[in-house]
Amino acid sequence: MQAYIPQADNIEISAAWKKVQTARMQNRPQSRDYINALCQDFFEVKGDRCLGDDDAIVTGIGRINETVFTIIGQQKGITIEEKKACSFGMANPEGYRKSMRAIRQAEKFNRPILTLIDTPGAFCGIKAEEKGQGTVIAEHLQLIASAKVPVIAVVLGEGGSGGALALALSDKLALLENSYFSVISPEGCASILFKDSSKAQLAAESLCLTPDDLIKFGIADDIIKEKPGYSRENMAYTVYKVKQKIKEYIDELSSYSGEDLVKRRYEKLLNMKGFNN
């Protein structure tokens, strides 16, 4: 079979690539922007009580629409200093352990969990490996899957691989219009499979990583529309839409007991099969 070569006039291809580019835009609102806009009384909790703290993951407690949530958000950073502190949104094991601490507390106090996803992937480096990056993501998945409280996930921008998935295992998954979720970055895929990193466009198209694709596969529940010109300065409309969606989800999910939530979550996941082209 011949590799499918993208044409300049192929609208579909530019659409997937455009989503990836928009999701990565500098001025795009991040988790802290959302936390500030969604709740007025956010209390941040820090540290994993074991290895340290990680600015790439923000955790805390805050009230959204009269419901107190445990919020876990991935932060890339705005200024150069913050970006460095956040490792550009790539969390280390201590970040995931802090998140696990937040999940355990959410269960103790019967608080629903809101995760905000925006990461190119989990941090990749010597220290991260030594401290068990793989182990911590595996344990995070186990824990969030078995949490006896509602879990709502919203993808704000980049949904990069296992590092994003750890926070995406949920009862409800919504994606902003210009976000993506992928097993690997289009550039990484292009250089490994197509032996040519300039074929990232083709990779973006082939990977089926757009919100529409995720809806089509039944992996995500909703796409949240962005107002044209959506940015850190112009996000009120989109925040309003996100807030509405959270309310809609929590109204539905609060009717289930903790045990039922977990049971339904497992069933939903195990029924996601039989995908065909």
Partner: peptide, 25 residues
Amino acid sequence: ARMQEGIISLLQMSRTTAALNRMHD
């Protein structure tokens, strides 16, 4: 994960977790 199956490969991490959690329970 198998890159050629994109997000569906990634999904298998969640699905296997769910099945193993059931065994665990």
